[in-house]
Amino acid sequence: MEQHSHYFFAVKISKETKLVMKDHLEKLKEKLPFSRWVHYLDLHITLAFLGAASSDKLKHCDQLVLQALEESNEFTLNIYKLGFFGRKNAPRVFWAAPQESPVLNSIRQRVYSACEQAGFELETRPFCPHITLARKWRGELPFQDELAAFWEELQPKPLHFQASEIALYKTHLGQSPKYEAVKIYRLQT
């Protein structure tokens, strides 16, 4: 069965920030049994997931996103907390989140609108910016019980970074790291 590459737009996290997060991920892995941990080089904040796409449709989307971002400036994000999606006892996604950012929300809306204009059908759930760290809880104890003793200890120190690039990523299933930035959109300084 042929597997098609998927594409998505995301805030690209700087190498320096990824290295700091890598150290934190190593500590989290020691305490939290998730099935799959994200490779530190794959860390990002998704803005719009496109799925499989033809080169013509991607080219049209590229032009629209380029126009949508041409007046956009780089901005600071502060990663400050951990959380999860799914059931409290067995979450499906474990993540780190940035503080609320009107600039990030605006950038996301511009990218999202450009992708819709290009004909992509996008997810309609409210935007919840996050950096996926791990997937599928596999602990013997429920997640909440396992965390109770050291939740405060696991919380990251606020990590500030300059969001200066948006990337169009291509997924390479079966590889690690699995995301390749095929186009970079630099924000103004």
Rank of each mutant, 00 (worst) to 15 (best):
28 L>R: 03
6 H>Q: 13
161 F>H: 08
172 H>I: 01
56 D>N: 12
103 V>K: 14
96 A>E: 07
67 Q>T: 13
150 F>V: 03
124 T>P: 03
51 G>I: 00
161 F>Q: 03
68 A>T: 08
46 T>M: 05
132 T>D: 07
61 C>W: 01
7 Y>C: 13
44 H>N: 11
29 K>V: 05
87 R>T: 10
13 I>G: 04
11 V>F: 03
6 H>Y: 03
91 P>W: 00
38 V>Y: 12
19 L>T: 11
182 V>S: 05
45 I>C: 10
55 S>G: 01
109 Q>L: 13
175 Q>L: 09
12 K>W: 07
76 T>P: 01
69 L>I: 04
59 K>V: 01
66 L>G: 09
10 A>P: 12
174 G>I: 01
155 Q>K: 12
137 W>E: 08
151 W>H: 10
21 M>L: 15
41 L>V: 02
19 L>Q: 15
76 T>S: 07
67 Q>G: 07
21 M>Q: 09
162 Q>F: 04
90 A>G: 13
57 K>Q: 15
83 G>Y: 00
174 G>D: 06
17 T>Y: 08
113 S>M: 04
181 A>I: 06
37 W>P: 10
67 Q>L: 07
100 E>S: 14
25 L>I: 14
23 D>Y: 01
122 L>N: 09
56 D>W: 01
5 S>W: 01
40 Y>T: 01
161 F>M: 02
22 K>V: 02
75 F>C: 05
94 F>Q: 05
146 E>P: 00
111 V>L: 08
35 S>N: 13
159 L>I: 10
184 I>D: 05
153 E>W: 05
147 L>W: 10
72 S>R: 04
30 E>A: 14
91 P>H: 03
51 G>R: 09
14 S>I: 04
81 K>F: 00
57 K>I: 02
102 P>M: 07
21 M>K: 04
146 E>A: 15
128 C>Y: 03
183 K>W: 12
100 E>C: 03
25 L>H: 04
167 A>H: 15
106 S>R: 13
1 M>H: 03
187 L>V: 10
134 A>R: 07
165 E>F: 08
92 R>L: 06
43 L>V: 02
184 I>L: 15
79 I>V: 15
56 D>G: 06
119 G>C: 01
111 V>M: 11
159 L>M: 09
23 D>M: 02
178 K>R: 15
95 W>Y: 15
183 K>I: 09
161 F>T: 02
166 I>D: 03
171 T>R: 09
91 P>C: 06
182 V>F: 06
9 F>D: 07
110 R>Y: 04
117 Q>G: 03
100 E>F: 09
9 F>V: 11
108 R>A: 06
122 L>R: 10
131 I>G: 02
42 D>G: 08
119 G>H: 02
188 Q>F: 04
161 F>I: 01
95 W>Q: 04
102 P>A: 13
73 N>A: 09
60 H>P: 01
179 Y>R: 11
147 L>H: 12
26 E>P: 00
52 A>L: 03
48 A>F: 06
92 R>W: 05
